[in-house]
Amino acid sequence: MTVKPDWLRVKAPQWERVGSVKEILRDLALNTVCEEASCPNIGECFNAGTATFLIMGPACTRACPYCDIDFEKTPKAIDPTEPERLAEAVRRMQLNHVVITSVNRDDLPDGGASQFVRCITAIREVSPQTTIEVLIPDLCGNWDALEIILQAQPEVLNHNTETIPRLYRRVRPQGNYDRTLELMRRSRELAPWVYTKSGLMVGLGETDAEIRAVMADLRAVDCDILTLGQYLQPSQKHLNVAEFVTPEQFDAWKQFGEELGFLQVVSSPLTRSSYHAEQVRELMQRYPRSRF
């Protein structure tokens, strides 16, 4: 694997706090994308007492060559106790903001939308002050399923674009760029009070102009929040890194995104989709929205 530059080195976490979070996750038999996808920020986030919960997993029905989540196992039946266990973890960790994501469950008629709703409902019952962000798959274009999730009123609806259109066939072979944009457009149309968010990986062979074009496409469907981060190869069997993008380039994209009108742009080599996601609470205070 290619040697990483200095700016991709992460600080060693305080393992006492990390261990406490891991103990809660193990005790409640919960998965996190932090662990399953080998996130480089796991130490920082666990140390801060946060995690991105991975529901309906850990086996995925898609085989994206950039992702470290297991796709070789057979997905299990939906666990009816998962929402309550997740809500209990939110209560124990005293989370102000929680991110719930999932593996792709193309084997389910609604793509798992109903389980997202159960998790949102369970969290609201035990921790009503916690704001909720859902990072959802594309649901195979099932817009009725998307509406089901939005009717549960998460504060943030996140769906990652991941890469530029030219690289979709190689990077995200079972995804569709136009479908991703349509999901973002419909989310704004169906629930204008929900903050919409998307994320991009870079370093896979895209150009600056291509990244900027995708950013413009996302603003054209009124996406509120954008994250940009460096792709890192989880193992030798995954896609190679084509380039380590400099922090200065990430700063330039942040400035461009703000000029386009994004409410928030989080752009740095180590940024991931839910990195510092709790900052959205500050954004919600600056740009309040109401359903009524």
Rank of each mutant, 00 (worst) to 15 (best):
Q249P: 02
M93H: 07
D217P: 04
D217L: 07
C39E: 07
P109A: 14
R105L: 14
P13Y: 13
L232H: 00
L183A: 13
R289T: 07
R179H: 11
A152I: 13
V134Q: 04
P165C: 01
V245E: 05
A216M: 06
A209S: 03
T246G: 07
L270E: 10
A51D: 04
E155T: 04
S235F: 11
E133I: 09
Y66L: 03
S273A: 05
D208C: 09
P234R: 04
E82T: 10
P288L: 08
Q129P: 02
T61E: 04
N31H: 15
L181C: 04
H159N: 04
V214G: 08
Q153V: 15
T61L: 12
L8K: 01
V280K: 01
V202F: 10
F262H: 00
G203M: 05
W193L: 01
I149R: 01
G175S: 15
F256G: 00
N158V: 00
G19M: 12
T131K: 11
N240E: 15
L260Y: 11
E23A: 13
R118K: 11
G261M: 06
G175T: 10
I55V: 11
R166G: 02
P109D: 10
S290H: 09
F250G: 01
R289Q: 06
C140Y: 12
P288F: 07
R118F: 01
T81C: 06
L95M: 15
E182K: 09
V103N: 08
Q151F: 08
Q233S: 00
I24L: 03
G141P: 06
N142C: 08
